[in-house]
Amino acid sequence: MRLNKLTSLTVHTDRVWQSQPHPTLPLLATASSDCSVQIISLHTFTPIHSLDSGHQRSIRSIAWQPNTPHPVLATGSFDATCGIWRYYPTTGDLGEYDYSTALDGHESEIKSVAWSAGGTFLATCARDKNVWVWEELEEDNFETLAVLQEHTQDIKCVAWHAEEVLLASASYDDTIRLYKEDVDDWECCAVLEGHEGTVWYVQFEPREDAKRLVSCSDDLSVRVWVRVEKFDGDKARPMSILRGDPVREDWVLESVLPKAHERSIYAVSWSPRSGRIVTCGGDGKIVVYEETPKTTWKIIAELGNAHGFFEINHVTWSRRFDKDGAGPEEEIIISCGDDGVVNVWVLEE
């Protein structure tokens, strides 16, 4: 198959770090070193709003809060704060986004922010080696539920399971760690070791009964990990209420995807529609993989110099909303690069 460019958006004046489609609405948010977030219509591929008065340094990561009446966005910046932005509709025009609150706590650059599937919890991680879990008690009132200090280095990415209260973090210390709420404490329940370099990105399989997650690394590998279910009567045992006895989970390596990248792999995205995986990296390549049959992955599309000579920082699947799209199952790939450009791709025969 081939990746064909649908459109190219020059909406930033510096490197674009990340883009995230809204979970339900035809909106894309992009985060950049120019200290702004752009909100782009996925109907028309035109910018609608510019959020540029919240952060003094690079905006590294963004996340849309699920299940809100109006769009709400979290931004993670190298200025060590996490911003919360709320959309307010106004009659007669496009409405506006307000910078409603800043979450302080991290001691250095925030690298990633992520909302849990229901929108209740927000996770943030930073170079200070900490993962913070926040809960929104009421609008703009956030409580810190946990400060998880399991990693020994800079933390690059946080991601939530689509149904369970299960959080993953990926680090410069080459490991992935999983956490869950145990009674009223948050505990590390698994450590995934195997990568031989910084783990840049992690994502659970996007389905409610997911038992797998995917990760990508400086070691040029993309790995799929799977939870080993226990059938040894553990479930019959009453849950311990003692601290220090967390509910351990066993996660093992299931597959290493075919090698395609020649430089650090910065992002991976797993499609909820097609089940395909896409990756991008410092070599300027976008690679698409398909699983046929289960646990066997093959490369179905590969495109070099997708942002000219520039590195590609992020890639994500999105539902296709523009007028030429065929329906809700059709999807696009959105990539962003050091050239300050956001590219939109379709996968075609």
């Binding site: 490197r15 070193s33 340094r57 690079s58 590294r60 190298f78 650059e109 690298k111 170079r127 800079d154 690059k156 410069y172 910084t198 400086d218 650090s264 410092g282 590195e311």
Partner: peptide, 15 residues
């Protein structure tokens, strides 16, 4: 070497 090879660390250091 790991620090110097980490693009994100280099970018944030220069900021």
């Amino acid at each position: 070497n790991k620090q110097l090879g980490d693009k994100e660390r280099v970018v944030s250091a220069v900021e």
